[in-house]
């Protein structure tokens, strides 16, 4: 995952960030990015991938959040910054500072970014995967897979709460892609994707 992620991130305008990629042991379907280049995918989402191109597309989406600093925009707009600075001004110890930051990060994850940030990250994900030599339709394929999950499936509850619905995202990315990718060939690398057993 780190090799694929780094290769995809290298195609962005921030190739030299200290990028880190990892898997969260949860059957939930979701993916997360944090400022500075930390990106995590849940095992449940990973299981929907049918090839390395799907992984690349999802990682490209998360790389998009990082390079466009979507989290920082939310932090600036919200009261989280106030809360954070007040806590720091109380000259708290190191661990408390870290815990404060984790609290803010978890709060953002729970609230979600704004819808336009998600649509923008989808467009970036498709392009970064394409630049990396992959098939462009990895991310749209994953969106379709997620869209198949029933709305009462707990595994997508947080994702559906914090992101536009897959149907809306597919419509937007379809419109944005148009016919630009019709003559663009890329690799799906289905056999190289590491399969994870239940």
């Amino acid at each position: 995952m780190n090799r694929v992620g780094r290769w995809v991130a290298t195609q962005s305008e921030r190739p030299d960030l200290p990028w880190h990629f990892g898997v969260i042991q949860s059957e939930d379907m979701n993916a997360f990015a944090a400022p500075g280049g930390y990106i995590f995918i849940t095992l449940g989402l990973y299981r929907t991938f049918q090839g390395e191109a799907d992984l690349a597309g999802v990682l490209g989406h998360e790389v998009g959040h990082v390079i466009r600093q979507h989290h920082l925009k939310i932090l600036q707009q919200s009261k989280l910054v106030d809360a954070g600075s007040k806590a720091l001004s109380k000259s708290v110890g190191g661990n408390d500072k870290v815990q404060q930051l984790i609290g803010s990060g978890a709060e953002i994850v729970a609230r979600g970014l704004d819808k336009d940030a998600e649509f923008e990250a989808d467009r970036i994900g498709v392009v970064l995967a394409t630049r990396a030599g992959y098939d462009a339709y990895g991310l749209p394929s994953v969106l379709q897979q997620i869209g198949h999950a029933a709305k009462d499936d707990n595994r997508v509850a947080l994702l559906f709460k914090t992101h536009p619905l897959p149907e809306d995202r597919l419509n937007k990315i379809d419109a944005a892609m148009g016919d630009r990718f019709d003559r663009v060939k890329g690799l799906t690398l289905e056999k190289r994707l590491l399969k994870v057993k239940k």
């Binding site: 969260i24 949860s26 059957e27 939930d28 379907m29 979701n30 849940t42 449940g44 999950a149 029933a150 009462d152 499936d153 707990n154 595994r155 997508v156 509850a157 947080l158």
Partner: peptide
């Protein structure tokens, strides 16, 4: 649909 699977 898999109900009963706990997510985050």
């Amino acid at each position: 649909a898999t109900t009963g699977v706990r997510g985050l």
